[in-house]
Nucleic acid binder design. Sequence first.
RNA 1: UCCCGCGUAGCUCAGCUGGUAGAGCAGACGGCUGUUAACCGUCGGGUCGCAGGUUCGAGUCCUGCCGCGGGAGCCA
Length: 431
Amino acid sequence: MAVVSEVRDLGRHVGDVVTVRGWVETTRSHGKVAFVVVRDGTGIVQGVVLQKQVPPSVWEDFERLTQETSVTVTGAVREEPRAPGGYELTVENIEIVQVAEEYPIQPKEHGIEFLLDHRHLWLRSSQQRAILRVRNEVEKAIADFYYERGFIRVDAPILTGAIGEGASGLFETDYFGEKAYLAQTGQLYIEAAAAALGKVYCFGPTFRAEKSKTRRHLTEFWMVEAEVAWYDSDDNMRLQEEFVSYIVARALDRCGEELELLERDTSKLENVVPPFPRISYSEAVERLQAKGSTIQWGMDMGAPDETMIAEDFDRPVFVYDYPKEAKAFYMKENPADPRTVRCDDLIAPEGYGEIIGGSQREDDYDRLLARIREEGLPEASYGWYLDLRKYGTFPHSGFGLGLERTVAWITGRPHIREMIPFPRMLNRLHP
RNA sequence: UCCCGCGUAGCUCAGCUGGUAGAGCAGACGGCUGUUAACCGUCGGGUCGCAGGUUCGAGUCCUGCCGCGGGAGCCA
């Protein structure tokens, strides 16, 4: 009985007969010599079948192979520069687990609607596998970054009462006769946890029922949010630039193969080291007006504005201290200019747009209550949040980073729908 | 919600000023001892998104609807 090996370990078995278990990517037959390429999740390996050297039953089994047939292939491992991956199996036996029906996805271009309808199969394609590997590495980098710095992960609830950034865009569901909403953010909960543990973060899915139809929006996306007691807005931006630089460096270090397969120009990622440029909102407005934008002071920046700002820099850029009207109720008023709040957006290069929104939080009870009333938010739902300003209030700051937008930027892909295994978008709930 | 664009074979597309519905890939069969999205030959494959209209005649022109894509707004 041959030893079972994962494809990535074949280099340790040169000269041995091993069994590989996986799925047939493609076959090529030449009459008396034939090739089968098998994928097992760790890599791909080519098997060569010589009609003279295998029993007739094995040759017949080869001829039954179709794309995505599940098989175990047994053969001797050889170094072979002509084979993808550098190793090749001289096939001695093929065991068919199931002959796959005609597979819808071919190694060629497909339309996005077709691919999304077949997302459960599309995941098997090489670029999609590479993207999911990069996502996995980014998720690990996030956990490592915070663990190394003494942050405690505090998971926020997904089912919530009416509480979030604003009243709009909430997915509603029934909770034993009471209305419940899918979380738009974990921030308010980890503000509570910051008073318990100091430095905390949460990481999980968040939901926005916005009818957005752009390459930067999903209705379900993953967000990692940090909250730090005693940090002001400047401390907050320093943490953000270290965090983003750490993630990018990790991807460059450990996902070289994937980024190459995705044809990412990694030289653009090498620049991503602190400090990131910082420009105030007011300065940004002046820059944009000089470039021809119609933005006026007081308006929020649109996506084209963000791209115009980013194109002047070779790394992410902070825009800070936005007008109060353009931002959420919980942001702290700027003592130096009360028209603005102490917040920042981090805009990624190359047109990827906002990947972080952060702020120092309003820690004064009366001002926070006034803002909740100004925004017309359901005051009763925010009682516990206001409590945090009654029992030992404290300066604190935090931010949220959109995982899919970050992975799209790192992988250089145009649309975030490929950055999550099963995207949820306007008009797309299946598969 | 608004503004653009697109719906033709299983998939990707071509189809000109209206006149017999096409190719490549995939599939089936045959050939080939080193292929890399192999190649060569043969074959099957269509409610041209749906409904109406104009016309002797509509894949093609017009109207409405549906679906999808891109963008705006909103945001991460």
